[in-house]
Simulated scan of single mutants.
Amino acid sequence: MSKIFIVEDDPSIRAELTELLQNSGYETDCVTDFSRTAETILASDPDLILLDINIPYINGEEVLRTIRQKTDTPVIMVTSRTSETDEVLSMSFGADDYITKPYNPTILLLRISAILKRSVKNVQTQTYRGLEVNDAKGSLIGNGKECVLTKNEMIIFRLMLDNMGQIVNRDDLMTALWDNDEFVNDNALTVNISRLRSKLTDMGCEDAIETRKKQGYILT
Rank of each mutant, 00 (worst) to 15 (best):
S2E: 14
I4V: 15
I6F: 09
D10A: 14
D10G: 08
A15G: 06
T18A: 11
Q22Y: 03
Q22L: 04
Y26D: 09
E27M: 13
D29I: 01
D29V: 02
C30V: 02
C30H: 10
F34Q: 06
S44Y: 03
D45V: 14
I49T: 05
L50K: 01
L50Q: 05
N54G: 05
V63G: 07
V63Y: 04
L64Y: 03
L64V: 04
T66P: 00
R68P: 13
R68M: 07
P74A: 11
V75N: 15
M77S: 07
S80T: 10
T82R: 13
T85C: 01
D86S: 03
V88H: 03
S92P: 05
D96T: 02
I99Y: 02
K101L: 14
P102T: 14
I107E: 09
I112N: 08
I112E: 12
K117V: 02
V120C: 09
V120R: 15
K121W: 04
K121H: 10
V123R: 15
G130D: 01
V133G: 01
A136F: 06
L140S: 08
L140M: 11
L140P: 05
G142I: 04
N143P: 06
C147E: 11
K151I: 12
E153N: 06
M154K: 10
I156D: 02
G165R: 06
Q166D: 13
V168G: 07
N169C: 10
T175F: 01
A176F: 02
F183P: 10
L189M: 06
I193T: 02
L196G: 05
T201W: 09
T201A: 15
T201K: 15
M203C: 09
G204P: 12
C205F: 09
K213Y: 09
K213F: 07
K214G: 00
K214P: 01
Q215C: 03
G216H: 05
L219N: 04
